[in-house]
């Protein structure tokens, strides 16, 4: 009995030690932010490395360089009003709203968004939360690539080609 108890204690201690030995901490820095991943096996470490590499590639932003063009593509959405006199009118109105939305998305991508936020907290509770976002831009030579109208929703795919020369100060 004593021997069996001793054997069980030894086995438990050895498994705990083996688990601690396998644990490896990997630190990868693909971007300015610091990511820490804890892995217990070598396969996990490799998988994490591959995932981080693919994420880093996906998050790489295209930079405008001389002799290189950047194509920006967006999908704007517009809704047809309820009180239209014909499907054609619904389509026309939804498409126009979708075009305006696509223009807004291009402006947001190229120029950026201004965000103003205000929270009113009273007696440890949020009484009023307000967020205002705005964008203001002039867009030239944007092209409609595709228009899809389905169940009252119109989607317009729009693209714009930016070149380095457009941004060089004269």
């Amino acid at each position: 009995m004593k021997h069996s108890l001793l054997l069980a204690a030894l086995l438990t201690a050895s498994t705990i030690y083996a688990q601690e030995g396998e644990t490896a901490t990997t630190t990868l820095v693909p971007t300015p932010s610091h990511i820490v991943i804890e892995c217990k096996s070598q396969e996990c470490v490799q998988q994490a490395q591959e995932t981080l590499k693919s994420n880093a590639k996906a998050s790489e932003e295209e930079v405008l360089a001389p002799n290189k063009e950047v194509r920006i593509s967006v999908v704007g959405q517009g809704v047809a009003p309820m009180n239209t006199i014909s499907p054609a009118q619904a389509y026309a109105l939804a498409k126009r709203a979708a075009v305006a939305d696509a223009y807004r998305l291009i402006a947001e991508k190229v120029k950026g968004v201004r965000v103003d936020g205000q929270d009113l907290i009273q007696n440890m509770m949020v009484k009023r939360s307000s967020i205002r976002t705005s964008v203001d831009a002039m867009i030239r030579d944007a092209n409609i690539v595709e228009t899809i109208f389905k169940e009252g929703l119109c989607e317009v795919e729009m693209e714009i080609v930016l070149s380095y020369a457009q941004f060089v100060q004269q």
């Binding site: 307000s130 967020i131 205002r132 976002t133 002039m138 030239r140």
Partner: peptide, 15 residues
């Protein structure tokens, strides 16, 4: 569109 269109968007989120 070739001449250039000015776009202005404002979004307000309240509560």
């Amino acid at each position: 569109k070739k001449l250039g269109l000015h776009v202005r968007h404002e979004e307000h989120t309240l509560n």
